[in-house]
Amino acid sequence: QLNAMAHQIQEMFPQVPYHLVLQDLQLTRSVEITTDNILEGRIQVP
C-alpha cells in the first residue's frame, strides 16, 4: 500500500526521489501529510 501511495505522490512531484517519498510515508502513512511535507520544504530534495 505504501508503494502505491509513493507512486501517486511521485506523479505529482517527479523531482522528489522515490526513496525520500517512501521514507516520509513510512512515518506519516498519509499521502496528504507527505504532500504537505514536500510543499512546505520539509523533505530535502538533492
Score class of each variant (00 low, 15 high):
Thr34Asp: 01
Met12Tyr: 07
Arg42Gln: 04
His7Gln: 14
Leu2Arg: 03
Leu2Gln: 04
Met12Cys: 09
Thr35Gly: 04
Val16Tyr: 10
Asn37Tyr: 01
Ala6Cys: 07
Arg29Lys: 11
Glu40Gln: 15
Met12Gly: 05
Leu27Trp: 09
Gln1Val: 12
Thr35Lys: 12
Asp24Glu: 03
His7Gly: 07
Ile9Asp: 00
Thr35Asp: 00
Leu39Arg: 14
Val31Cys: 10
Leu2Ala: 04
Arg29Ile: 06
Ser30Ile: 02
Gly41Asn: 07
Ile9Ser: 00
Leu2Asp: 03
Val21Gln: 01
Thr35His: 06
Asp24Ala: 03
Gln8Leu: 12
Asp24Phe: 05
Asp36Phe: 12
Pro14Gln: 03
Arg42Phe: 06
Gln23Asp: 09
Met12His: 08
Ile43Tyr: 04
Glu11His: 14
Pro14Val: 03
Ala4Val: 10
Ala6Val: 09
Leu20Asp: 12
Gln44Pro: 12
His19Gln: 09
Leu22Cys: 08
Thr35Gln: 07
Ile9Asn: 00
Arg29Pro: 01
Thr34Arg: 01
Arg29Asp: 07
Leu27Ser: 09
Gln8Val: 11
Ile33Pro: 00
Pro14Thr: 04
Thr34Met: 01
Val21Asn: 01
His7Asp: 10
Leu39Trp: 05
Glu40Arg: 15
Pro46Trp: 06
Gly41Phe: 05
Ala6Tyr: 05
Ile33Phe: 06
His19Arg: 05
Val45Leu: 11
Glu40Tyr: 11
Leu22Glu: 06
Gly41Thr: 03
Ile33Asn: 06
Asn37Phe: 03
Pro46Val: 11
Leu25Glu: 01
Gln23Tyr: 08
Asn37Cys: 03
Ile38Glu: 00
Gln1Pro: 11
Gln15Leu: 11
Gln1Cys: 14
His19Ser: 08
Ile38Pro: 00
Arg42Ile: 06
Asn37Trp: 03
Thr28Asn: 03
Arg29Val: 06
Gln15Ser: 12
Val16Gly: 03
Leu25Gln: 00
Leu27His: 10
Thr35Asn: 04
Gln44Arg: 13
Ile38Ala: 02
Val31Trp: 08
Thr34Tyr: 01
Asp24Ile: 06
Ala4Gln: 12
Gly41His: 06
Glu11Asp: 09
Leu20Gln: 07
Glu11Ala: 14
Leu2Met: 08
His19Cys: 14
Gln23Pro: 00
Gly41Pro: 01
Phe13Val: 02
Gln8Ala: 13
His19Leu: 09
Ser30Gln: 03
Val31Ile: 12
Leu25Met: 03
Asp36Pro: 01
Gln23Gly: 07
Ile33Ala: 13
Gln23Val: 08
Leu27Thr: 11
Ile38His: 00
Tyr18Arg: 14
Arg42Leu: 07
Ile43Met: 08
Glu32Met: 09
Ile33Leu: 12
Pro14Phe: 02
Ser30Lys: 04
Met5Ile: 08
Arg29Ala: 08
Asp36Tyr: 09
His7Arg: 15
Val45Asn: 10
Leu20His: 06
Met5Trp: 15
Ile33Tyr: 06
Met5Glu: 06
Gln44Met: 11
Arg42His: 06
Gln15Trp: 15
His19Tyr: 14
Ile43Thr: 04
Tyr18Glu: 14
Asp24Tyr: 04
Tyr18Asp: 10
Arg29Met: 13
Asn3Glu: 15
Glu11Met: 14
